[in-house]
Structure formats: C-alpha cells, structure tokens
Amino acid sequence: MNTCIEVKDLTKSFNGRTVVNGITFSVEKGEVFGLLGHNGAGKSTTIDLLLGLKKPDCGTGTIFGLEPSTNRKAVFERVGVQLQSSNYQKNIRVDELCKEMSALYENPEDYRRLLRIFSLEKLEKSRVDKLSGGERQKLSVALALINDPEIVFLDELTTGLDTAARREVWGHLKDLKKKGTTIFLTTHYMEEAESLCDRIFLIKDGKKITEGTVKEVIESSPYENLEEAYLWYMGEEAAI
C-alpha cells in the first residue's frame, strides 16, 4: 500500500471562527475514505483546502505528494472531483456538458460509456436542468470520472436522493473500488459510510473526534451500530 493523500495539521479560520482545526490524516491507494460529520462540521472546507481551492492558515494537504494549488495540471489530470450541490449552465444538454468536461483533459474517457454505466444513455440529449435529482447526482459522479481518475472526491453525493437511487450510486462506487480507484467521500449518512468505507474519520467543529475502520470506531464506543456510535462520539447521546 502507498499513501496518495496526506493532510497535516490543516487549519482554516473565517472571520475569527476556526472551521478546520488541526486536521491530520492520510489515505492509502485503493482505499475508500469517509469524512463524517454534521452539516457545517468543516467537511467541505477540508476538501477545499486539500484540493487547493482555499488557502489554509497553516498545515499542508498533498495529493500524490504534490500540492494541488501549485501543481494543478499534474494533479487534476489524475483526480476527479464532484463538488457539493453542483450546478450547470442554463439550457446545457447532457452530451454537451460531457463534451465540455472531456475537453478539459488530455485523455478523457468515452463519455458515452460512462453514461451507459450509469444508465443515463437515454438522457444524452436531455437538458441537464430537466433531469431528476437522482439522475443529476449520477451525472455528476459520471462527470467526476470523465478523466478515468486514480482518486475521486465525492462531496455529499447522495444527499437528497431516494433510497433506490442512493443504493444504485453505492453499487457504482463499489465497482469503482473493485477497479482500484481511491475514493474520498464526505457524508452524514452512517449507512452509507458503513456500506462503502474502509476507513472513516469523524470531525466536529473542525476538530478530529476519532478515526479508524468502521469496526474499530464502533468497538471503541459503548454502542453496537455506527449510527449510535456516531451520535455518542458527537456528544449527542440524548438522541439515541
């Protein structure tokens, strides 16, 4: 195994409020890594800092040993990203969006193949804004894979999906994992973390609470499933 993502002591404040506070972790190649926490816990900011979209106050985030902000070309040819609640141009069609995204990479995948995998091929000529929530989320995952990435970042990809659509997306992610793709995801659904993640990392108010495999995290709590253990870690036992 070798490390492909390394985060050291990442810290970021906005207007005096520390959103990410001394976060340190690493992700091995081929691993599914889940960053878990409530809304506003600092998950998206951690991703932004790691990807070089925001400048950290201190600490570093590297991917393949490189800082993304100064090595954009080298890093992002090999990394796919789905940002939280992605929106697209007004009136754009699925095929046009795929072509536009393909144009950004040296060796893009055949987008029609990706649409087939995600059973979106019938929607190729549809307007993106006419798609259902589930179809649009599947499309955003497909777009994150358009450069056949070695690492894919998925920020709350199943928020707002119904159970069937969520399971379908999970299925695709498991296939990706079999292929050896490293997956970095954030979620606040414990079922999702349990079903997909090799390792999870819990944060609250920008600080690390615990990390480990799902089993380890459950075992070091007094509870028997991840949802209850999660609430316990978050200090919200009253909800159990």
Binding site: V79, L83, Q89, L104, Y105
Partner: peptide
C-alpha cells in the same frame, strides 16, 4: 456572475484547465 454563483468557475479549478478558459 451566473457561473460563479453556480460554482462552475470553482469547478474549473478542480480540472487541469484554468477557469480563464
């Protein structure tokens, strides 16, 4: 302004291309 609001410009930062494109 629309592309900025929809985070389309931001998304370009996560590709090898510049949002200047």
């Amino acid at each position: 302004a629309d592309y900025r609001d929809k985070k389309i410009l931001k998304h370009f930062f996560t590709t090898p291309c510049s949002p200047v494109w």
